[in-house]
Nucleic acid binder design. Structure first.
Lengths: 280, 280
DNA sequence: ATCACTTACGGGTGACGTAAAAATC
DNA sequence: GATTTTTACGTCACCCGTAAGTGAT
């Protein structure tokens, strides 16, 4: 029996050329490498190296062994991924979304329908979402368009409409609606993880500046201590009323300020997730 | 990284059904099995078993893991065989022979011609010799016939002739030659490892009995303390004069008492062993 | 002088076996 | 009572890192 760490060390040596460099890569000491290579030769009962006084190189048997080792380690890696992946696929429901709003709506529904599963949700750009869905990294993704792929089926969910969130000080605070055009050129506070919305506001207000905040708490504090306009949507206001931060939320009247979201799953999983799609 | 012994234990458990039986097979204690299986679950971060109070069985993930494990262990085994085999193929010259005489002649020649290699020689029956040659388990085999295979080439070596070895007491001791027919029905002492000769004497003297001795020393002692006839050949007498044991060696006159031996190698190795074949 | 490999030595992790407990058949 | 799994505990193997030595660049 050859323990895996010996194979790992052999491959590292082959990749790095010297024991020292391999030891560095593996975060172990150099003598450990020496010992491991000697042990490997001992187990195989075949000399793997041409040895000079302070020089070491793989001979033909060593190179052959390193090739075998690389393949075996790859098999181990595929075991890890295979078993973990199979487990996750059966015990979690992974949602990927192109915006925060839809996942806020979907997550509680999924939780109530898959009581035995772990529901996870993350944001990603739409290309990665589609790749991830095909790749079985996601069970369901939420997109702002219908992808052109026959192995994917889509269900229209709902629309989400953008507001600008203003303090009473702002000149537009009394309006019942605003347009991108009239808000263009101003400085906005913006949450960093808004998904598709970022592209929409940047395209529609090319002269505006956006101060992106990674941290939601920092965003709230900033919103309460400045008069800079920020954003909200009909969904975020409904789901998290505290997000108002005492501001006045005025809808954009432009058509491009309303996005339609689609839930997409693999066609092969249509049966399994049929009842979920019905509830959207 | 999953160390190989964990995979080995998992496969043993899967094969044996209980931890106790697997532990027996592996010659380890039962608690070691418990720990190893727990560790494996810990590393994979996936439950592999359905656990009852004193009952354990693999779940679907465990079965998948065991399948992976079996394949990985097979890869390791093939690494061991592959590397060792490659080394042996380059550093040894393995002779297989259907009788002891020809290898006595061949071994010193091979030793002198392949000074850098280990010369090994073993006896086997002719079917296994041919299989072993094709299988690269032998570099050269000595047969009593020319095999019908285009990937094998043959060179005629020499003949070996059978004698009966008698004490002066024996009625035939004064003859210059004997026939199988006149010796048939007697009791012979015979060395166990005579290869093709056993079949020859049994076929030609169907009514004789043969007392086979595995140990050469025991054979010699027996020969010196009994009057039972035994065997020798022109080659054994020439190579090991002490084998005479003070007996009178009389050739069989039958044609079937002389065997022609052929050295056979793989055609693809013709170039490498050309000069050796020339010297036979 | 730096780098590369090896040997020597002491330390700590962890795999092991024994023993015992709990539960099932 | 026999079998199976698990936990507890002390032991020991062995893998590791540090230190020191040799030889080459």
């Amino acid at each position: 029996m050859i323990e895996s760490y010996l194979l790992e060390y052999l491959v590292a040596y082959n990749d790095n050329g010297t024991l020292s460099k391999a030891a560095d890569e593996l975060h172990i000491s150099q003598p450990s490498m020496t010992r491991a290579m000697q042990k490997l030769e001992d187990i195989l009962d075949v000399p793997l190296f041409n040895r000079g006084k302070n020089r070491l190189e793989l001979n033909e048997y060593g190179k052959l062994a390193a090739d075998y080792a690389r393949r075996i380690l790859a098999s181990e890696e595929s075991m890890l991924q295979g078993v973990r992946g199979f487990y996750k696929a059966n015990n979690s429901f992974r949602i990927g979304s192109c915006a925060p709003g839809p996942s806020m709506r979907l997550q509680p529904i999924a939780t109530s329908m898959f009581l035995d599963k772990t529901i996870s949700s993350e944001q990603n750009d739409e290309d990665n979402l589609i790749r991830g869905l095909l790749n079985q990294d996601y069970d369901l993704v939420i997109l702002s368009h219908v992808p052109d792929n026959k192995t994917i089926i889509c269900k229209k969910m709902f629309t989400e409409s953008l507001n600008v969130a203003l303090t009473a000080m702002h000149p537009a605070a009394s309006k019942s609606s605003v347009s991108f055009k009239e808000m263009d050129g101003q400085n906005f506070i913006m949450y960093a993880q808004v998904g598709v919305w970022e592209k929409i506001v940047r395209e529609n207000m090319p002269h505006a500046s956006f101060f992106k905040q990674e941290d939601l708490y920092a965003l709230g504090t900033l919103a309460q201590n400045s008069d800079l306009p920020s954003f909200s949507t009909d969904i975020t206001l409904a789901e998290i009323p505290s997000r108002k931060n005492g501001r006045i939320n005025i809808p954009f009247k432009d058509k491009t300020a309303t996005v339609t979201f689609y839930a997409a799953i693999l066609k092969e999983k249509q049966g399994r997730y049929h009842s979920l799609l019905e509830r959207l």
